[in-house]
């Protein structure tokens, strides 16, 4: 009973995950959950494996041990086609933006729509402009990626990540390089996506801004040992009012 209830509410679950890069053990038998329809934050010092965790969830890296399920499906057991179907329902915002440099902002946002849907060009146009508007970059649609600042590029990447209306978005450091205004735009957008569309959001960030979003849960990744060999993960702040008291 308890079990089925928790799987209802858990969109992503990580169980006994162990992962190494060479001799460097990045995760040692960690388990954590991400709730459906909620915002979960992951914090931790640079180089502890936050990006790595997102890539494991997205099925780009394979764990040595352990199981990661997304929406009830074991990510690393799926066939290639099933994995791609699952990824259509996940958006990922890369730390670097990862925009395609040979096309302009408009085509970048239109790219997943053109690849995965059969919408007419006019429908794609209105969708793309809507998503760009949402990140406050409608006016930049004709710029090439090399003409964007780092912060702008990341917002375009966000517009692209939400183009297919995914059920979940993995944000890797969305706030770095944003000025206070665009940071505000992003915070409101992430919250709005979560509240109005019920999107599950996993946000990696070490910006205090994360507290304004009031994540439901927060996971800390940190090195418990001075020499930093073993990585522990799983210190949760399950009380959202904590953030409110301190930061609003």
């Amino acid at each position: 009973m308890d079990n089925s209830d928790s799987s209802q509410n858990t969109l992503v679950s990580v169980r006994n995950l162990t992962f190494s890069r060479g001799n460097n053990k990045i995760f040692n038998d960690i388990s954590l959950d991400f709730e459906r329809g909620k915002i979960t934050a992951i914090m931790g010092p640079s180089g502890t494996g936050k990006t790595t965790l997102l890539k494991l969830i997205g099925g780009q890296l394979y764990p040595e041990k352990g199981i990661i399920t997304v929406d009830g499906e074991n990510v690393h057991r799926l066939r290639r086609k099933e994995l791609y179907e699952l990824r259509k329902r996940m958006g990922m915002l890369f730390q670097s933006g990862a925009l395609l440099t040979d096309m302009n902002v408009y085509d970048n946002v239109a790219f997943p729509l053109r690849e995965h849907t059969h919408l007419t060009e006019s429908m794609i146009r209105s969708l793309v402009l809507m998503k760009l508007q949402a990140v406050g970059l409608r006016g930049a649609s004709l710029l090439m990626p090399n003409e964007l600042s780092g912060g702008m590029a990341r917002r375009v990447a966000l517009a692209r990540a939400i183009a297919l209306d995914p059920m979940m978005i993995l944000y890797d450091e969305p706030f770095t390089g944003q000025d206070p205004i665009s940071m505000g735009v992003l915070v409101l957008l992430i919250k709005a996506l979560n509240e109005t569309l019920g999107l599950t959001s996993i946000i990696v960030s070490h910006d205090v801004c994360i507290f304004i979003i009031q994540p439901k849960t927060m996971w800390m990744i940190y090195y418990p040992l001075e020499n930093g060999i073993e990585v522990m993960l799983g210190y949760a702040i399950a009380n959202p009012t904590y953030a409110e008291q301190n930061f609003s």
Binding site: K55, R87, K88, F94, P112
Partner: peptide, 11 residues
């Protein structure tokens, strides 16, 4: 990361 980005877009 353009190639990884594409993979994550299921392309």
């Amino acid at each position: 990361e353009q190639l990884s980005g594409m993979e994550m877009m299921a392309i």
